[in-house]
Write a protein that binds this DNA or RNA. Structure first.
Lengths: 241, 241
DNA sequence: AACCAGGGTTGATATATATCAAAAACCATG
DNA sequence: CATGGTTTTTGATATATATCAACCCTGGTT
């Protein structure tokens, strides 16, 4: 319950696009693996700032992030924006579009990135033939729902510093799950984007970072984060109030 | 983008439990309808306050709400709770549990209610045989993800009165979709529950109701809501700031 | 190496919402 | 229909975060 997205490893579906270490679906026999090739996913490259899709675009495919990272955001007509997530290697993006056959948010590359495009009708057809794939797809969608519930808890009932602590701990876990350092990493997003995600203004995010630094929880050097005292960071989420 | 859950009608899967008017899956031929009987859903009754499931329970089934209504909530260890949704007739509940085979939130009846229990393994098996059912299941999960994104936008970037306006407009739409009056209805939830859902304290919710009433947007008599000026209520969401 | 632009930090102040408290309305029950 | 307990409303005040503004980095470019 602590974190919005436990977001453990085995996420994706796309075993043929070199993310297999991270996201191979559970038990597929070799015959099934062969079938999976029918998916024939196409790789596509993006630079920082490029849109993978925009709200309103016709839905055709899900995307497995092969390298790099993206943010998803919803825009309100009056210009307000809300970042709804930061996605990294091995995560699947585009699930919101299944509902109406139209993308409901924007997905923007936060750095040079490569995605595998997974045509959804083929994915559906294959998952009728391969129960393990079907189950995996359901799990991925459900995991997104659980993640969202965690963010609701965060936005609805936590104060600024707790939110930031949850955010950092979540990143830490996800980096760890990818074999990267869970205690030192580079943020790919600006204070403004973090603020939008956490329902805070960028100044508040900046102040919270400074306060964590002054309290000896973390070391911040602009976008380089080093977690000094993981336990205190965790306590910060639980103990408040 | 206005509302977190457009949440239109055709929601469910359970054609055999008399909610067919509301939630019949799209185009099924009679042979497929026959197959659907294999689901053999069991009806279960609940009184106000009863738990349909609790966080941590083993996952077996999804539930289609046949009558009445439920709230779902996540609990943080330190006692904080966040209401993540209010579900009514024709809506499907339990999707969060697919991810880990364990329910990730509580579902509590808000009044006397009846649900159809839909064993998930049978649902999966059937949806491998009936593409339209598979598609419907995917749509339902995706719709939940879109709804959650709307709530993130609400919690992350709207002020108290906007949140309440969005909440009321959403209820109004959902009642309308069920053939009930979109302008006059009974709230099933307390100020405290509304507050938890909207990330506000109950006093703030109460004040916002009073302010809407004084401004002639709605008539409030405790839990009876009458929308007097729908347009102004909509404006209230868009025009602020 | 100097310069510029965008992002980040920090400070002073304003404001929306929370908190605390009391009264009022409502509901269930005997 | 009186009673007690809960829910709701309203008021006064406190507080967390937003807002406004200035300054400071930092990395890239000429």
């Amino acid at each position: 319950m602590l974190l919005p997205a436990p977001n453990s490893s085995h996420n994706a579906i796309c075993s043929t696009c070199n993310v297999s270490e991270l996201c191979l679906p559970v038990d597929l026999c070799s015959k099934e693996l062969l079938k999976l090739d029918q998916l024939n996913p196409i790789k596509r490259c993006f630079s920082r700032g490029d849109y993978l899709y925009r709200s309103g675009d016709k839905f055709r495919s899900l995307f497995a992030i092969h390298s790099g990272s993206f943010k998803t955001q919803v825009l309100h007509e009056d210009g307000r924006e809300q970042v709804t997530g930061f996605q990294m290697v091995g995560e699947i993006i585009g699930l919101d579009a299944i509902s109406t056959d139209t993308h409901a948010c924007d997905a923007v590359a936060m750095e040079s990135s490569v995605v595998c495009e997974l045509p959804f009708n083929r994915l559906e057809a294959l998952s009728r033939e391969i129960p393990a794939l079907q189950r995996q797809l359901h799990r991925i969608m459900s995991r997104e729902i659980v993640r969202d519930q965690g963010i609701m808890l965060l936005l609805g009932s936590m104060r600024a510093e707790e939110r930031l602590a949850v955010f950092l701990l979540n990143l830490s876990q996800r980096y760890a799950a990818r074999g990267l350092s869970p205690i030192k990493f580079q943020l790919r997003m600006s204070r403004q984007e973090i603020g939008s995600y956490l329902g805070l203004k960028l100044e508040t995010v900046s102040r919270a970072f400074s306060h964590f630094q002054n309290s000896g929880l973390i070391n911040v050097k602009v976008r380089t984060i080093e977690i000094i005292d993981m336990k205190k960071l965790v306590d910060c989420v639980n103990s408040s109030r």
